[in-house]
Design a protein around this nucleic acid. Structure first.
Length: 318
DNA sequence: AAGACGAAAGTGGTTGA
DNA sequence: TCAACAACTTTCGTCTT
């Protein structure tokens, strides 16, 4: 396998040997290792060169030398690998009998595409629709497709609607990527009942053995904060408060959105960017009452009472 | 009039027998 | 499978600004 070549690439890769501090490093091309000349420590091994191993000067050479196609993706039902018969323009180069033969083959290919494939096509279309509605990044969509594919292969879709499984897979993927959406948002985007999504979500994660950490309230802060048009300072203040709350074990057992909303509310208060409880509650998808309860706890447990009161006094004086 | 606060009753989900 | 339970919601009345 070709490896990183030349001293120049090595130079900005490793500067010093972590063991003896020597800068006398040598690069062994044949083994793909970087070795310290002084103490013999192998600093880096099995390096892979992601560059070309050949050069191409025109499209003709490129066609001859390249042996890979488009990258694999789970967002296409056949992972982008499928071959369709005779759909290219070169079918016109054939004549008479051959042309007929190819169109017959085409027809058969269409017929034999199995139920699973057709189901996957539909499901992935739905998945793309929902995720673009929620403006989810590609990596999440990719992950959700994989989850869905696995679910189908394990026969977990039986007895459930395709849409609910798609929504469940998406929810799981979001959680895994630490960019959580609430069940409400997902329900809104997919048109599936919130309870149903939760049920299938729990089911497929259990059956597929997907381990998901309980969602962290901090992950919600950026989104809520921008929805409320709060400053970056307030946002980081909210994260600070949240971290303190977590240290004080105020967060366990509580709904993450409620806690996130409350700390955002407090942070806004302290930074003179007051939002009403109603506003915060709306973007977080909880009620004012929940915010109030969390907010009270935060003030009490974290000793922020004086700080907030001072702020409010200052505001009055101004 | 609007927002904040608190009490009381209701709801959906989890847990343990 | 059922009851107990905690978290959260809904509703409503009161107080403050």
């Amino acid at each position: 396998m070709p490896l990183i070549g030349g001293e120049n690439k090595m130079a900005n890769y490793v500067k010093k040997c972590p063991e003896c501090g020597s800068i006398n490093l040598i690069f062994k091309d044949e083994r793909g290792e970087i070795i310290c000349k002084d103490c013999g420590l192998v600093i880096e091994e099995k390096m892979i060169d992601f560059g070309h191993e050949w050069r191409e000067f025109d499209s003709d050479q490129a066609a001859k030398r390249r042996r890979t196609g488009a990258p694999l993706t789970s967002t296409k039902f056949d992972q982008g690998l499928g071959t369709s018969i005779g759909s290219g323009s070169d079918i016109f180069k054939l004549s008479g009998k051959s042309k007929q033969r190819f169109s017959r083959l085409q027809k058969w290919q269409h017929r034999i595409s199995t139920a699973i494939e057709r189901n996957l096509k539909l499901a992935l279309a739905e998945l793309k629709r929902v995720s673009s509605y929620l403006k989810l990044p590609n990596s999440v969509v990719e992950d959700a497709s994989t989850i869905y594919r696995n679910a189908v292969q394990r026969g977990l879709v039986r007895g459930r609607s395709m849409e609910s499984v798609v929504a469940g897979a998406l929810y799981a993927a979001c959680r895994r990527h630490e960019i959580p959406r609430t069940l409400d948002e997902l329900a809104d985007a997919s048109g599936i009942d919130k309870k149903e999504i939760g049920r299938t979500y729990r089911f497929i994660t259990r059956e597929l053995g997907i381990r998901i950490l309980p969602s962290n309230p901090i992950d919600y802060i950026p989104r809520f904060s921008s929805a409320l048009k709060l400053s970056a300072e307030t946002q980081s203040k909210a994260v600070e408060i949240l971290e303190m709350a977590q240290a004080a074990e105020l967060t366990s057992g509580r709904g993450p959105t409620g806690i996130a909303a409350a700390s955002l509310y407090v942070a806004a208060l302290m930074n003179n960017e007051k939002r009403t409880q109603r506003e915060v509650a709306d973007v977080a998808g909880v009620t004012e009452v929940t915010i109030r309860n969390r907010y009270k706890e935060l003030l009490k447990e974290l000793g922020l009472e004086e700080e907030v009161k001072k702020k409010i006094k200052l505001e009055v004086e101004e």
